[in-house]
Computed example of a mutant assay.
Amino acid sequence: MEKYFKMVTAMFLMIVAVSCSKENDDTINEPEKTFDINNPVGYVIYAKFAGLEFYSTNLIFLFDFLPAKRMVSYSAYAPRNESEYNTPNASTMIYRPYPSWANFNFTIENGKITNIKSLDGSISEYSVIKKPATNQLAGKTFRGKYLKKDGTVLQDGFYTFLPDGKTVDVGVQFPTKTRTETYTNVGNIGALVNIVSGTNNDHEIMILVDGKLQVNYRDNVSSSPKIYHGIFEEVK
């Protein structure tokens, strides 16, 4: 009888241990969170497309969702534009960030973008990104190159994001900085410099995608504005 009692007690303790383990594991029975076209707040959409009138063929955008079916687009071409978007069906979003621009048509299926169309240019890269909880740029340095339209190197460059989450040092030859900018945090993966210091009205945007910093710089000094594109990798 004593042996039987010990066996039952041991089995009971095992069941309790497993039960407590499951209660402490927050991932158990938690539904997978994916992009919902009817409730997209908390996500951003990254897109890169070719605008043939620009010096660079790579124009990058970050689209951020607000409540009440509103979206904000961020870019070096037009720093911040907010307007409504509509969903004509269960897998399509239509958004026009600026009155004179063509629509962006997003096709989304199973939480992923399967197509983006715009008459202003052809889309070469795009992805839906869930906003991380913290600023993914703060405290990191990225080095890389700005590219010409034909893909050859224009110049070297680097970006050092300070731990404060709002300031970035920029330069050509690391680690000598040539300017320091205050930026707007976008979705904890993007940084928008509305007006670059020392310029009339230049704009700059930096977006961290798949571990690389994609950058656009709009030069408004000349009579025909040019947008430069660069790719930068983290210095570890």
Rank of each mutant, 00 (worst) to 15 (best):
K3D: 01
Y4T: 02
Y4R: 03
M7R: 11
V8M: 08
V8Q: 00
M11N: 05
M11S: 12
V18K: 09
S21C: 07
K22I: 15
N24C: 14
D25C: 14
N29S: 11
P31W: 03
E32R: 07
K33H: 10
T34D: 11
D36N: 14
I37D: 05
Y46T: 05
A50Q: 13
A50F: 13
L52E: 15
E53Y: 09
F54R: 11
T57N: 13
L59D: 12
F61Y: 07
L62S: 05
F63T: 10
F63Q: 01
D64L: 03
F65R: 09
M71S: 02
M71T: 00
V72G: 04
Y77S: 03
N81C: 10
N81V: 03
N86K: 11
N86W: 13
A90L: 07
S91G: 04
P99I: 14
P99L: 12
P99S: 08
F104V: 01
T107C: 07
I108F: 03
K117P: 00
S118E: 07
V128T: 10
A133V: 12
T134H: 09
N135G: 06
N135Y: 02
L137S: 05
L137D: 09
K140E: 09
R143W: 00
L147V: 07
L147H: 05
G151N: 14
L154K: 11
F161E: 10
T167C: 09
V168E: 03
Q173V: 04
P175K: 10
E181H: 10
E181L: 08
T182E: 15
T182V: 14
Y183Q: 05
I195N: 15
G198Y: 12
T199G: 04
N201T: 13
D202T: 02
H203T: 09
I207M: 11
K212P: 14
Q214T: 12
V215A: 15
R218K: 15
D219W: 04
S222E: 09
H229W: 11
H229T: 07
G230S: 13
I231N: 08
K236P: 13
